[in-house]
Design a binder for these strands. Sequence first.
DNA 1: AACGGTCTCAACCGCGGATGG
DNA 2: CCCATCCGCGGTTGAGACCGT
Length: 329
Amino acid sequence: MGRAPCCDKTKVKRGPWSPEEDSKLRDYIEKYGNGGNWISFPLKAGLRRCGKSCRLRWLNYLRPNIKHGDFSEEEDRIIFSLFAAIGSRWSIIAAHLPGRTDNDIKNYWNTKLRKKLLSSSSDSSSSAMASPYLNPISQDVKRPTSPTTIPSSSYNPYAENPNQYPTKSLISSINGFEAGDKQIISYINPNYPQDLYLSDSNNNTSNANGFLLNHNMCDQYNNHTSFSSDVNGIRSEIMMKQEEIMMMMMIDHHIDQRTKGYNGEFTQGYYNYYNGHGDLKQMISGTGTNSNINMGGSGSSSSSISNLAENKSSGSLLLEYKCLPYFYS
DNA sequence: AACGGTCTCAACCGCGGATGG
DNA sequence: CCCATCCGCGGTTGAGACCGT
């Protein structure tokens, strides 16, 4: 047996609101409020509408100080950052954007920002990449003119067998990860020359350990040297799934948080993650079976992102994420 | 101008959680 | 503790606007 409907659909008006209905709703709320009960509200206000419809109309359109129109760059940045940190919790995101409603932000994400993000990740050669957060910021960053030295499919598990990999959002599987997320408006540090790509350490796709999802956060591109040897000097850019990009953004976020206040440079570190089945909580806390950070590059010390700040020393920071190319919820 | 495809966004739906009797 | 009711949220829909041919 299904849930009882909140009102009799045959007796209420549906669809777009007329100006007369709007003014009735607005006038009544401004005089009396909603009386603490939206279900009985339409009757009192003289509206032939479902109470939920009234509530929605008020919250999303009629209430004062609602901001309509284009989103600013700053708003984009906030949405990207928060989405990376907490996923599609639109009401929380809306709370950080005065005047914007969760519905607005949700629509904006689904129609514009998502595409912006995907196009920026797949079109790395474009000079007009939409997302500033996934760009190689530094002009010094040298990206290969052709990513096809090795056929990209050999590096791209999705291209090889797209049906094998579920598309469920990784972010949705990490809801509940709090760690100060709510206070954080922005974390993406535009000063990092970001460099995302996926490869497998042995140049083949049958590596049981999965693929290396690499993210260079070095100050200078030539700090790639040691990393390049890790992947046999071969780099190949591929189109990353949105979930992967989000994961990178989220990890960056935590690194950034954990290293706040430290002004020096970092030693080289490797963060290996290949057996946690997408559990970022484990990944970040270091409690996963095979998740650890080796600071110093030779595996001498083991830690977690949580402890990164304590392991800082001179040098540059290079993080390497070793991931299965798919995620479980 | 006509048509068809795509996009936008207001509105709807149904679920889970909170609350109160 | 149970149950009914309501609220708030996130996913989805579809009418109308827009765009390309």
